[in-house]
């Protein structure tokens, strides 16, 4: 069964557009089969990421169109919400409670039996590296500790779908690496996880499956490298550092797939519309000329470049 399916889904807040006409489906999730994974929801501030997250979590009702989670409307169907774990973007929680109490209550509200809720909460906090602080009140927590507690509230009841809205904001680098590792592990274990962020390297570290959202609309979805390949409007850049860059220029100057060549004393940057042919011809030029190549890379074959191309942001 498809985890999330949005069909022409739009959401307005009065006159303000949240998301517009979003049609999107996650890969299938079948109980007992490890078909989940992590999907990065990427977009600049105000793009509509949180709105989409809230629609998926059942916090909002679509203004138009439909959005279903495991085949039902999360806004109306309580049973579906049992299978969802959600962390909001904001930090506020019930600060008077201890971390263990907070996570236990959240697990209870998600349907975990009373007898199991406390153990499940303790395990979730332990998984987030919060064992030492679990008996302390949330009021005194740092930003990072709050984030980890929030994540524990999302996973304690063992949901099939995790919706994590900006889960790494304010987390220190060590904790970030730990959390990224845990999210990846949960994805590998069969959970469908949607992680939103506007920080490219966070998403890059988590997954290569992305959904790019901008001004309330889905610009692209799928594997980041696949998306990059599909963007033919923007030539691929290939940068070669070698001892004689001019020899490469001479060899490839006549190639029709090249749109631009930049050269300096130690390197040459080629912009091509046909990367495969370009790499072939480059290899031939290097071998024929006996060049010493120090490095070869594609500076825009990454998430940041894809994001910029799609949203039209100059880097």
């Amino acid at each position: 069964m498809t985890a999330i399916k949005a069909e022409n889904c739009s959401k307005w807040y009065g006159q303000i557009l949240g998301i517009s006409n979003v049609t999107w489906t996650t890969p299938g999730t079948t109980p007992g089969r490890l078909t989940g994974g992590v999907v990065g929801l990427l977009g600049p501030n105000g793009a509509g990421k949180s709105t989409l997250m809230k629609l998926m979590a059942g916090l909002l009702r679509p203004s138009r169109g439909a959005l279903t989670v495991f085949g039902a409307s999360p806004y109306d169907d309580l049973e579906v919400r049992r299978r969802i774990g959600y962390t909001p973007e904001h930090e506020k929680a019930w600060d008077e409670l201890t971390a263990l109490e907070l996570v236990t209550v959240m697990a209870r509200l998600a349907g975990t039996p009373r007898t199991r809720a406390r153990d499940a909460a303790a395990a979730a906090l332990d998984a987030m590296g919060m064992t030492d602080a679990m008996h302390r009140r949330v009021r005194g927590f740092s930003k990072g500790m709050r984030q980890r507690t929030k994540l524990a509230t999302a996973i304690a009841h063992g949901p099939d779908l995790l919706l994590l809205d900006e889960p790494l904001t304010g987390v220190d680098p060590v904790a970030r690496a730990e959390i990224i590792e845990r999210i990846r592990a949960l994805g590998a274990a069969g959970k469908t996880i949607i992680v939103s962020s506007h920080v490219l390297y966070e998403i890059e570290a988590l997954t290569s499956e992305i959904v790019v959202i901008h001004r309330g609309q889905v610009l692209a979805e799928g594997n980041v490298f696949e998306i990059r390949r599909l963007i033919d409007k923007h030539p691929h850049r290939i940068r070669v550092e070698c001892d004689r860059p001019r020899a490469i220029v001479r060899a490839l100057a006549e190639a029709d797939h090249l749109s631009k060549i930049s050269i300096d004393a130690t390197s040459v940057t080629l912009e091509t519309r046909d990367p495969d042919r370009c790499y072939d011809q480059l290899a031939a030029a290097v071998l024929d000329g006996g060049l010493v190549v120090r490095s070869l890379g594609s500076p825009d074959n990454n998430l940041g470049a894809v994001f910029d191309y799609l949203t039209g942001t100059p880097r």
Partner: peptide, 14 residues
């Protein structure tokens, strides 16, 4: 106001 309702509304509670 604190939007802690986000935790409640995302749970299966009426």
């Amino acid at each position: 106001e604190d939007r802690t309702t986000a935790y409640l509304w995302s749970r299966p509670v009426p």
